[in-house]
Amino acid sequence: MRNVIVLPVLLLVVALVANGCIFEPRAAEEPDSETAVPYLDRIDPKNVWDNMQTSLRNIHSPGWEDAILQADFTYIPDSDAESQFPGVFDGWHGEQEVEFIRDFYGTNPVVDVLLRDPEFIVPATSGTEVQWEGVIYDMTVTDQGGAVNRYRGSADITFKVEGNFWFVSIWEDLQGESDPGTSGGVALPTMGVLRGTIASN
């Protein structure tokens, strides 16, 4: 009796496997140029962070999605962003981060970004987990309607090796940073405010 059920089910599965797949992606158009978004191999944390900057500059979400450890990613906002968007950051993990970056890029923004302050000394990579403490990023976003917003903050970034590559595992915004040159000593908002704005809409 058992074999009467088990065998047909397994045969059906084998047939599906032999067929290759159930779903098919759409056919891609032939590339119209040789210029690709220049991502680096994720063999150390610096490359991963630079890839995120490249993703922002090119409004190309796959770069961001590949850089974060989607199965074990956590975003922790700074206290200012948290108080502006209460509840929005509860349980902000890989799925929320992917949704955020897709929604953000979907607004068709123009992004001018330096994700790592030139004075930041990149720690040497060692082992399978590394934390960058107090990395300062600076980003200016211009939306389709011409509105300009600037985000500048310091963050602790934890990178982890998963499988074969490095990923960002924890992004903890510490506080907004002032830019002595332009903001008159007043701290600018962190990317937590951008995340909160996009997610709350």
Binding site: F104, T107, P109, V141, D143, Q144, G145, G146, A147, V148, N149, V193, L194, T197, I198, S200, N201
Partner: peptide, 12 residues
Amino acid sequence: KRGQTGAVDTVG
């Protein structure tokens, strides 16, 4: 005053 994404837009 907010921009198209919902972000505050007071520059200018």
